[in-house]
Each structure stands twice: as C-alpha cells, then as structure tokens.
C-alpha cells in the first residue's frame, strides 16, 4: 500500500511543479542582472529599485488598485441590496431577475466586454477611467449577489420581524440584525469582486481608453515587444504579499481549530 501512497503524493508533486514552474521562472528573472530572458547575468535588486520610479508601471498599478477597491466597494453595496431585493421578490420575477443577473457569468468575458463597449458607444461616453470602473462594477455585482444569496437563505426570518416589533427602524434592523448575519457572504463577495477586478484583462481591454490602462493592459502591450523585468519584480512583490497573507490567515485558522489539525474550510476567495 505504501508505494501507492507515494505514487499519489508524487502525482500532486508533479502538478505542483507544473503550476509553479513559470512562477519560479518569473521570480528568478526579477533578480536577473540582464534584460534578456535567455541568459543569467547575475543577481541584482536593480529592477526593484527602478520599479518605483517607473511612472507607467506605477500609474498602471494605481489604476488597478483604485479600480479594484472602488469597483469592489460599489458592487458589494449594489450586490448586497440587490440580493436582498431579489430575495424578497415573488417567485416568478425573482427567477427572471436571477437569470438576468447570472447572464454575465454564463457569458464569456469577450461577450461581456464587447457588449459594454457597444453600450458606451451608444451612450456617447468616451472610454476611459469611468467606463472602466462601470464595467468592473458590472461584472463584479453578480458574484456579490451569488455569495450573499445563500446567507440570506440561512437567515432566520423571525429575526427581522422581532427587531421591528421591538421598535427598530428598517435601517436599524438591517444594520444591527441582518447585516451581521450575512456579513461573511458580504465579505467574501467583496474579496471575490476585488480579485476579479484586479485580475481582469479581457473586459478592461474593450472598455478602457484615452490612455487609461491597468496592469493587465500594460503587460499585454509590453508582451509584444518584451516584458520589462520591472514587471516581474512587481509581480513577485504582489505574489509574496498574497502568499504571506493567505498562508498566514489559513495557518492561524488551523491552529485555532480544535479538530486534530484537519480543517474543513479554507479561506479562498473564489
């Protein structure tokens, strides 16, 4: 039996190697003292120094982050209230609306991007920061609705009534009773929206203009001429942050969990 177990572990090892190979390469290149990908010119931190003075990359990073957080915040508010509104609808209209909200997830990114671009063209809105933000909100909201909905279903319907019987205004009832209960869903919706927005390329490609570009678009433009090692340095930094953050959060959960080290849940914003 033991060789079978080793075989299984080796398989996971191989898949890990496949998934991490390009990442290891990328990290190595970020320390490579040569602009070419083909040769190793010795260890350097030069790209990390130059990264912070590169206005194009820093600007793109700023756009990515500001669009990401703004889009995530707006779509979390919109999606949470939307989910509550959907939840309170009668069966027929609810199902109709749910199908509509699910459309962007069923559709491919290309179709979403093209359709939003045509919308802005029709409304004579010039493509730029605002259209980029609106588009990101548009494709993030469904994910927020999707992660809030199950929490609403688990909600005890008597709680809201009890709050109102005891004299709470709807707003107080929402803030004190409903929101704390659905908070995990709202939070995971926010994180999901943030992740989707930061990682997005396709929709951004169709809906941005007038020189506004986020990291994905900058990388896409660079890929044709050759990617600057500075981008590798930036990605290494981002990857390191995410890595430490997620592993840290999950290890803490592991330690807290009383069940002999075996954990059912892991926090992955997907």
């Amino acid at each position: 039996m033991n060789w079978k177990k080793n075989l299984r572990k080796a398989y996971i090892g191989l898949i890990m190697a496949f998934l991490y190979a390009p990442i290891v390469m990328l990290i190595l290149y970020s320390f490579n003292n040569s602009k070419s990908r083909a040769q190793w010119g010795g260890f350097t931190l030069r790209w990390y120094h130059e990264l912070f003075t590169d206005e194009a990359i820093m600007g793109a990073l700023g756009t990515t982050l500001s669009i990401g957080f703004l889009a995530a915040a707006i779509s979390t508010v919109l999606g949470t209230f939307g989910a509550i509104a959907l939840f309170q609808m009668k069966r027929r209209p609810r199902q109709a609306m749910l199908s509509v909200v699910n459309l962007p997830m069923l559709n491919s990114e290309v179709v979403t991007g093209v359709s939003l671009m045509l919308l802005f063209a029709m409304a004579h809105i010039q493509l730029g920061y605002v259209t980029l933000l609106l588009s990101h909100v548009a494709f993030c909201v469904p994910y927020v609705v999707l992660s809030v909905m199950p929490k609403l279903r688990q909600l005890d319907p008597n709680l809201a009534e009890a709050a109102q019987d005891l004299g709470a205004t709807p707003m107080q009832g929402f803030l004190r009773v409903i929101l704390p209960d659905i908070m995990p869903g709202v939070f995971s919706g926010f994180v999901m929206a943030l992740t989707m927005s930061i990682d997005d390329f396709v929709v951004s490609f169709f809906t941005t203009g007038s020189g506004v570009s986020n990291l994905s678009i900058t990388i896409y433009t660079m890929a044709k001429r050759g990617i600057s090692p500075k981008i590798n340095a930036l990605s290494t930094l981002i990857f390191a942050c995410v890595f430490i953050l997620l592993i840290g959060v999950n290890l803490q959960d592991l330690r807290r969990d009383p069940r002999k080290g075996k954990v059912e849940k892991v926090r992955i914003p997907y």
Binding site: K5, D199, N250
Partner: peptide, 26 residues
C-alpha cells in the same frame, strides 16, 4: 494521504494570483 488538504488546495490555487498574462509569458 494529506493531513492538511485545504492548505494543499490553497497552494494549488495560489499561482492564479499572479497575473495570467505574465504566467503565460513566463
């Protein structure tokens, strides 16, 4: 086989946090 399957799963998903254009380029 794995004592902490969730952690391994997390490790398998982590590469997705690096921009996919960059990974493909790599």
């Amino acid at each position: 086989d794995f004592k902490r399957p969730a952690l391994w799963l997390l490790l398998l998903i982590l590469p997705m946090w690096m921009n996919f254009l960059l990974r493909t380029y790599s």
